[in-house]
């Protein structure tokens, strides 16, 4: 029996290793409480944005700035990465550590792709469109909301990268499994927030 597995009575890793220990179950439950708090955080940022989105101070407006192509591409990248993290958790439930790592690596690469696109987008706004953090109430609200989401993506990329390293070092155990499960939940939540961002910020910005 591999020593990287936390042993149960018969020496096998349980079917859903993230729920096998009380500590694992508590971690998952309390992560939901954290996500509830995250919903409040993003809710207040959305509230600020919705209140200020027409205060452009004679700077660029949403309709002038946003491009459908960039938004659609960012949406597609994040949606695919959410699916690959589902596949990661499914590989974990099959105790296939190699596949689990591959899907997590794909998720991280897609996360980096999303970040690269967002950095390119922001730099275009700041340099070409003269749309900086202090241009207008709209610009401040926009950069705060979308930037907070981008920071969450960046944190997720770092977190999942560290987990991949830990999976190489320690393998899949009842200790590492809850971490993987919880990070996948975090990643889905980031995608859920993005659904509201592309709708409320980008598409509503185009509608007027």
């Amino acid at each position: 029996m591999s020593t990287t597995h936390a042993e149960t009575v018969d020496g096998a890793l349980p079917h859903e290793p993230e729920k096998a220990t009380l500590e694992g179950r508590n971690k998952v439950l309390s992560f939901w409480l954290f996500l509830g708090g995250e919903a409040v955080l993003f809710g207040t940022l959305f509230a600020t944005f919705l209140a200020l989105r027409n205060q452009t101070n004679e700077g660029p407006t949403a309709n002038e700035l946003f491009s459908f192509t960039t938004t659609a591409l960012a949406t597609l990248i994040l949606l695919v990465s959410s699916l690959t993290s589902v596949f990661a958790v499914q590989a974990m439930h099959r105790h296939n550590v190699a596949k689990l790592r591959v899907w997590l690596i794909v998720t991280v690469i897609l996360g980096l792709g999303f970040l690269g696109l967002e950095i390119y987008e922001f730099s275009e706004y700041v340099i070409a469109e003269k749309f900086g953090m202090t241009t207008s109430a709209f610009s401040s609200a926009f950069y705060t909301l979308v930037g907070f989401h981008g920071a969450h993506v960046a944190f997720g990329v770092l977190w999942i990268s560290v987990l991949i390293g830990q999976l190489f070092k320690k393998g899949l155990t009842v200790v590492t499994a809850p971490k993987v499960y919880v990070s996948a939940m975090y990643w889905h939540f980031i995608d859920v927030v993005w659904v509201f961002i592309f709708t409320v910020v980008y598409l509503l910005g185009k509608v007027g």
């Binding site: 439950l29 939901w32 409480l33 996500l35 509830g36 708090g37 995250e38 919903a39 409040v40 993003f42 809710g43 207040t44 959305f46 509230a47 600020t48 919705l50 209140a51």
Partner: peptide
């Protein structure tokens, strides 16, 4: 419990949004 946590979070978020728009 997760559903209760999320409904709680969305309820506060929704309240903030409605308040800001009303304002």
């Amino acid at each position: 419990m997760p559903i209760i946590f999320m409904i709680g979070g969305f309820f506060v978020a929704g309240t903030a949004i409605v308040t800001a728009l009303y304002w």
